[in-house]
Design a protein around this nucleic acid. Structure first.
Lengths: 365, 365
DNA sequence: CCGACATACGTGAAATGGTTACATAAGTGA
DNA sequence: TCACTTATGTAACCATTTCACGTATGTCGG
């Protein structure tokens, strides 16, 4: 069950500290007795642990609850504002930055436009400005940002470098994590946008109850992200989910065909009205999506397939034909749902990634 | 890092016991001081832990080493013979059973032929007999078998039932794990054969140093198994890796085309000699394999791709063209190697699966 | 306002498990 | 036989947790 290194009594304290902190974070505010019940520890132990956590700044005492029976219990709350994380999507034409506290609550958003043809350094600068503006605007000191994560299209390796980008000019080779780390002088991570969007769905979206998830992100290109056991599965080189590069799948020009002479919104609307040609085009698009998705689904056999990106909001007009085609292609047909988040998903997933890093490295969870 | 439940001091002992047992199992035989160095625990603690393990029957003291300097140290050994596991491949025309001790050492093999058209109950009976013969022949009491695992072609769900089998008559719906459990009156597991073969390669074969592995099993049908993080990834319904069912991939009749009018061995040999037609046919076969494999590789982006099954032993005649085609299809090209094991891989993987179960459930590792 | 009740807090004793330090035992080699 | 080397045995001590029990501090009903 556990790959824990052996140790002495201090290990015990560490384990109990982590469990208590987890419980308190989940509860928000709790009394010693409550935490004891939750964790299974004695009140005294919980108290000792909380003292320590209080000294470290992660926990504060809050005024006791009034009107209850018996002696009022001291109440403790997780100090979500002890630190912050920033998540940012560095997209083709937009930048979305989010600032969140340690509780995962997003405090501030910041958006910026960026020219699709902008050079790498311009794009990076726009991202940097957006992140700084986001933090400054919320009145948070820059030094209180403990981690940054960035999501972008293309293949991002495990060091956070963009090892291949097709859509963004000069983007291949950019050390995204390395550069983002300098913005706040903290650790930084970078990952593929579809992967992060998947993470966001698993965190607070449609994939909350799924463990293995395939997220198909529809945009100018179609990409995919994979979660295995609730965790990011980037693959050896960060290329997991890149099924679109397989010519047989046809993801490369799926979007182009959909919007031959009209905007995507128009096509979907027409299809919804019953327009024959539009229906056919949507169906073709759905079939193409389904072929690639089925390849992923057959490979991974996920609990859930999430459709996200720009076209996801049209809902059943697109979902229904995708489901239909998928059912024909897969042995084991996963549930198909639309993404919960609009264009905030990637940044939100980046927040989650940064938060996970903080939890692991700093809080020691 | 750890999702450990909090606890009192006895948790500490549990953790340390596990660590010590792990170390001793790896070392085979060791002194207290050695184990202390390895685990980082004090000699006294190791001694107390070993006492306990000795009482439980997992550890025995062995004669001290002679001829060494200083006072001879007591030496302890893992009692690999404290329990046993059985792994069995229930194949289309052969049954391979293996009996192993807790150290993972295979003590006995047993093979049996079975008619390809045999009914499910005949096949099951043959498997049962092979397993029992394997255990009886080795002189091990049947009650000392702690777990059984079976591998078979087709989709096996997480309860160990064959939910879909294309090749074996009447095989769909068979509760393989449930039935195998009755053979020895112990817990039983069942999984897809390619998955188990992958596990075997990761355990003791070509995939020892890889964490994410795709195993492509070439036989009458082509199947695939996936390891993520060194662990089996069966997927929600056990259908992970079933990329072959995608028509575009063409795995369904790859084997048939290869052996149109000659045996596979003949074709490979002719290709090796330089025969044009044979070369073309091998190349076509390799391309078909590569298309499906690339779909899996693109989805999962594994560290390693292992080619196994009957044709794997021909080596580079097949590997080279597969590598070539794969390189054209994949963004991130994994290393490609041949399987280490012949037709023992599945049974060996089953042993590993059973062993993992024992380690987790019984030894509490 | 007061007593009954409920609930939380505080303290000390005891159990568990682990470590360090040091004396002692049991071999090898000249 | 004696020096040397390495392992063992024992005792003192530390960290962490739990349990038991008395005390503090609120609400509620008269």
């Amino acid at each position: 069950m556990t790959e824990l290194r052996p140790g002495d009594a201090s290990l015990l304290r560490k384990v109990n500290t982590q469990a208590t902190l987890r419980a308190l974070r989940r509860e928000g505010v709790a009394t010693l007795t409550q935490l004891g019940r939750i964790t299974g520890l004695s009140r005294q132990t919980v108290e000792a642990v909380l003292d320590e956590l209080g000294e470290r700044g992660y926990v504060k005492e809050v005024p006791p609850d009034e009107g209850a029976m018996g002696r009022p219990a001291r109440r403790f709350g997780f100090r979500a504002d002890a630190g912050h994380v920033v998540g940012v999507e560095v997209g083709g034409d937009t930048i979305v930055a989010a600032l969140a506290d340690l509780g995962g609550e997003v405090i501030a958003w910041e958006r910026a436009e960026v020219d699709a043809d902008a050079a790498a350094h311009e794009r990076l600068d726009a991202a940097r400005r957006a992140c700084l503006a986001c933090v400054d605007g919320a009145g948070i000191a820059r030094t209180r940002v403990w981690a940054v994560a960035a999501g972008t299209s293309g293949i991002v390796d495990r060091t956070g470098r963009v090892s291949l980008s097709i859509t963004l000019p000069g983007w291949t080779g950019v050390d995204l994590a390395g550069l983002a780390g300098r913005w706040f002088g903290c650790t930084a991570l970078a990952a593929n946008d579809a992967n992060l969007a998947a993470l966001a769905e698993h965190w607070r979206g449609s994939a909350r109850h799924a463990s293995d998830v395939v997220y198909v992100m529809m945009g100018r290109r179609v990409g995919a992200g994979i979660l295995i056991g609730g965790r990011l599965h980037p693959g050896r080189a960060g290329a997991a989910g890149e099924i679109g590069t397989l010519r047989q799948v046809g993801w490369e020009d799926a979007a182009r065909e959909l919007v031959k002479d009209a905007s995507a919104a128009e096509v979907f609307e027409a299809a919804l009205r019953g327009d024959r040609d539009a229906r056919r085009r949507v169906d073709r698009y759905a079939e193409t999506l389904a072929i690639g998705a089925s390849a992923l689904a057959l490979a991974v056999d996920p609990d859930l397939l999430v459709l996200g990106g720009g076209h996801a909001r049209v809902g059943d007009v697109l979902l229904e034909p995708v489901r239909r085609h998928l059912a024909e292609l897969c042995v084991s047909v996963p549930e198909v749902v639309a993404s919960t988040f609009g264009d905030e998903g990637v940044a939100l997933g980046a927040v989650r990634l940064a938060l996970s890093h903080v939890e692991q490295e700093i809080l020691g969870l």
